[in-house]
Design a protein around this nucleic acid. Structure first.
Lengths: 200, 200
DNA sequence: GTCTATAGGCAGATAGAC
DNA sequence: GTCTATCTGCCTATAGAC
């Protein structure tokens, strides 16, 4: 029986390398040579652990979806509306900061028309979003949240937070700051606070 | 001398086809075969008009930058601050509606690290953005605009408007509306109105 | 489990006839 | 100007030795 520690170490190294390369060059732009070099393995050895280039990519995307959907699941319907939504924004911003490569991998996939995850989007994601939108509408009806379009507000949260990871190059070109994210969170929080705060 | 009408018609057809294919599959994901088929020409004939695959791509990107920067140039420093900025948002939204493929072509390029347009970003774009940011800061100091971070506000405008073109698949999956954009503009306008409106 | 060597296919670009 | 045929290189994946 094979040493499973070596197996899991190599599998992890391949996925780490795949994340690095796929997120930088997209699926077609990435090559197994690059991934193998990044992982410190030979190309055939890569294919000993994963059946194909697409298998590596698929494994990464599937593993990613859970991390990506988690922040929305942690919104508490019993909590204070504005605080819950701002905490959600904050969690999404933390993902952007901690996992920019994952964000770009995801962005690449969506840009290409989401060929591998279209099902997950229109099933799992849509279910979560519709539930949150219903919750927000209830809060709005109760006067605890400003009257906004719930669906488009959720989309706005994604757009603003992920933009800092996906369009990092452009953000840096315009800001010329060492850490473009340091003032980003304060700005995004302010933006949603003003949008969502109920006015009587 | 050759019939220049044929020349310009074919060049236009190639660029149109290139826009369609490059925006859907990215630079590496696109093939000359696909572009040729889309343009109704043979592959060698494509290369009679453009020296290489990259020449088509470069021509598209360069032509795009002007259209993309135009809305920011049309902001009037003499105008009413909030109205000027909301009009800018509206122009960006119009670009998203009219030129979603151009937006995705641009997004693909940025996502890959902007290898072909990094210079333009850090020169021309940055100059325009810094000028607008200065203008906004002056408006803020005069109490005619709410105190926001000008640079991050500009980035937010890009993020929100372009998201509807670039992440179209995801937006549609979540909204299941025939025209995802019909309520988008009202939402985005409301969002920036609340962010930017000065409160005394 | 890991390697070298290579098969097999595809894509960008060119040659040369018409 | 446009075509068919083809060269060339790269990339995914496999064969087979160790």
């Amino acid at each position: 029986m094979a040493d499973s520690r070596i197996q899991s170490r190599n599998r992890a190294a391949i996925l780490e390398a795949g994340l690095e390369i796929f997120s930088r060059h997209g699926f077609r732009g990435a090559t197994l040579d690059q991934i193998a070099a990044e992982a410190g393995l030979s190309k055939p050895n890569l294919l000993y652990y994963f059946a194909s280039k697409e298998a590596i990519h698929r494994t990464l995307l599937l593993g990613l979806m859970d991390t990506w959907l988690d922040p929305i699941r942690r919104i508490d319907p019993q909590g204070e509306p504005l605080a819950e939504l701002l905490a959600y924004v904050s969690r999404k911003m933390a993902l952007t900061r901690q996992y920019p490569r994952e964000s770009r991998l995801f962005a690449n996939e969506i840009l290409q028309g989401a060929p591998h995850i279209a099902d997950t989007l229109s099933a799992e994601l849509k279910t979560l979003v519709d539930a949150l939108a219903d919750q927000m509408q209830a809060w709005i009806d109760a006067g605890r949240l400003a009257p906004v379009d719930p669906h488009h507000t959720i989309i706005s949260i994604w757009a603003l937070t992920q933009h800092y990871a996906d369009f990092d190059v452009q953000v840096r070109a315009v800001l010329d700051s060492d850490d473009p994210l340091d003032r980003a969170e304060a700005h995004v929080t302010q933006l949603f606070q003003r949008l969502l705060q109920p006015v009587d």
